[in-house]
């Protein structure tokens, strides 16, 4: 393993460009395959490059047999992202726990008194309105969105942007009553039951959470359960 190649894979993924590290497990020869080119001392043939591109598209590492022995194709993906709307108290532990869990976190709040670096040391903050921030950040299949303000003029634009994206998780803080009122407003915007089914509200797994940190645990548990749904189902079946 060339340290440089590993570094290139990690940095490329962090910059939003997926990369596949292709390693012959007999010789140890390696190449890094990206969207349009490859580099390294393993000269992958066309079928191996094709397999690497397929692994990138599937977002799944693969072990393949070749005439030169087993080859491991390791996919380095851009990090999962969490967009937290509302720099409220709950957002503080949630941002820290989500970072530990592997998410690149952005806290969005146009109210500058809330989204301060004193309250969120080391966290990426956006003082834009959520619809502007999300137009820029472009949530995708590897993105979770959580709204925490209770304030329709802040939360609703974020939920609308999230529903129009492929975000794998959407959660909205608020009581059942708040949530019912929220869905009514979203219905007026043209959203349907299939859209509403994507919103977890009231947000979080019911663990009787009280403190902001406990509520953050319940939200992060629900995000994880959604992300790993295929695994937990197979475990129940087994």
């Amino acid at each position: 393993m060339k340290l440089e190649l590993f570094k290139r894979a990690v940095e490329s993924a962090a910059a939003g460009r997926p990369a596949a590290l292709v390693t012959n497990l007999i010789s140890g020869l390696q190449s890094l395959v990206q969207e349009s080119d490859f580099e390294g001392n393993l000269n992958p043939d066309e079928s191996l490059i094709g397999a690497a591109r397929q692994a990138l598209a599937d977002d799944r590492s693969a072990l393949v047999e070749t005439s030169a022995g087993k080859v491991f194709i390791e996919v380095f993906n851009p990090p999962l992202r969490l967009m937290v709307v509302g720099a409220v108290h709950i957002a503080q532990p949630l941002a820290r726990m989500a970072a530990l869990t592997g998410y690149a976190v952005t806290v969005i709040d146009p109210r500058s008194a809330f989204a301060s670096t004193e309250r969120f040391p080391g966290v990426e903050l956006s003082a834009e309105w959520p619809d502007e921030a999300m137009a820029r950040l472009k949530p995708n299949r590897r993105t979770a969105v959580v709204t925490l303000t209770h304030d329709p003029k802040v939360d609703d634009p974020a939920l609308i942007a999230a529903l129009r994206s492929h975000a794998f998780y959407i959660g909205a803080l608020g009581s059942k009553k708040t949530h019912t009122a929220r869905l009514k407003r979203l219905a007026e915007e043209g959203f349907k039951d299939t859209d509403f089914a994507r919103i977890h509200g009231p947000v979080g797994v019911d663990i009787g959470a009280i403190s902001p940190a406990e509520i953050a645990v319940s939200i992060l548990a629900q995000i994880t359960a959604t992300l790993r749904a295929d695994r937990s189902k197979s475990r129940q079946a087994a």
């Binding site: 393993m1 340290l3 570094k7 990690v10 940095e11 962090a14 990090p79 970072a99 690149a104 080391g122």
Partner: peptide
């Protein structure tokens, strides 16, 4: 925040530091 590179980032950083100190490293 520094870009979150997850577990791989932590391992890369440590391996880089060890190599910088002239140590042998295996992955």
């Amino acid at each position: 925040m520094a870009t979150n590179t997850g577990d791989n980032g932590d391992i890369l950083a440590q391996a880089t530091q060890w190599r910088g100190q002239g140590k042998g490293v295996a992955l």
